[in-house]
Design a protein around this nucleic acid. Sequence first.
DNA 1: GACCTTCTCACCTACGTGTTAAGC
DNA 2: TCGCTTAACACGTAGGTGAGAAGG
Lengths: 205, 205
Amino acid sequence: SKLEMGPETEDASEREIRVVLEEKALWMNFQELTNEMIVTKTGRRMFPVLKVGISGLDPNSMYSILLDFVAADGKRWKYVNGEWIPGGKPEPQSPSCVYIHPKSPNFGAHWMKATVTFSKVKLSNKMNGGGQIMLNSLHKYEPRVHIVKVGGPQKAISSFAFPETQFIAVTAYQNEEITALKIKHNPFAKAFLDAKERCNSKDVL
Amino acid sequence: SKLEMGPETEDASEREIRVVLEEKALWMNFQELTNEMIVTKTGRRMFPVLKVGISGLDPNSMYSILLDFVAADGKRWKYVNGEWIPGGKPEPQSPSCVYIHPKSPNFGAHWMKATVTFSKVKLSNKMNGGGQIMLNSLHKYEPRVHIVKVGGPQKAISSFAFPETQFIAVTAYQNEEITALKIKHNPFAKAFLDAKERCNSKDVL
DNA sequence: GACCTTCTCACCTACGTGTTAAGC
DNA sequence: TCGCTTAACACGTAGGTGAGAAGG
């Protein structure tokens, strides 16, 4: 299912819904180096995980929280001599499919009482309708969160983009500094952190 | 949070909501032997897992699905000489706390499109507000599912009990036939299934 | 002693990592 | 060759089993 959007924040009128990115410092460490996210056939989780704090909802109304990825430019990027350089011809990119946060739909009170975490979204380079989001490898994307009021008169959608979380989709990491940063912070990559530590203690001996 | 119930099926009027137990044959294997469920301080999952098919909801209305456990009798049971025998004095038992299915609230269409599975409910013998359900060890219980319409004028609750799924809460299995049946069917107990198989092949040698 | 509960343990399921070599 | 993708792999996280010994 795709989401065709008009201009952003169609209905941030009366209440002023706010969505703020969490762990911004971590994201900026990656942004500095130009962030990369692995895409695989079966889908790969994001790291860092996108987490947001939400406020300004009606506690008693029902909302769904959506995540999609906007092509930051239509360009194909290439990593040469330690640098990302864009291809010249921007192709038109349609917005990605939409990931629906698994706790959707739920009350405004639920979404506001704690950080909303998109830990389970999976990025793929193939379309295989298992809830994964298909992206084009070597293209740049910007995550975007949508808040949709459900049950009521519909058409109340607010959208929020997070430039700090931009990344280039890749099938294998290009910048080894990105790899090192992922290993340093992602608990699931602990095996490789341990390996590096063993290496370092060898150097000392 | 407790659920005080009047007579069952307060509002099964116009639509006739139906809730049917899945994997009934498996449940009856356990029922035959008098089923037991482990309770621990931190909470233990049920096996078999309670799974139900739901029909007759309004696809566009919002419902929450609840699970609780009714004390089948107030009696304390005892396993002696390979048999469960009840104690004489039935104590009054209040209904258990309520487990809210994690996909609640959701549309009728969602609940009806696939089997609803309570795999994550945890049974405990202590009260330690982490979403676990406290039961009294050595007492007999009957699982019960409630369907609550939310958002609307409330007070529309339908309840369904499943006699085939009755069990006695225990801190350690009493009937070794129950243990064997659990090991046979629960993938998480595969270690003990393998051990038994190694044993059997030894016998052959 | 008898009965029930608690804790630690080995052994699984299930799956998230980057690495590496092979494929195209 | 080169650039990119794929699949198998070792090694983690995270947590669900009953066994068996210890506790009350």
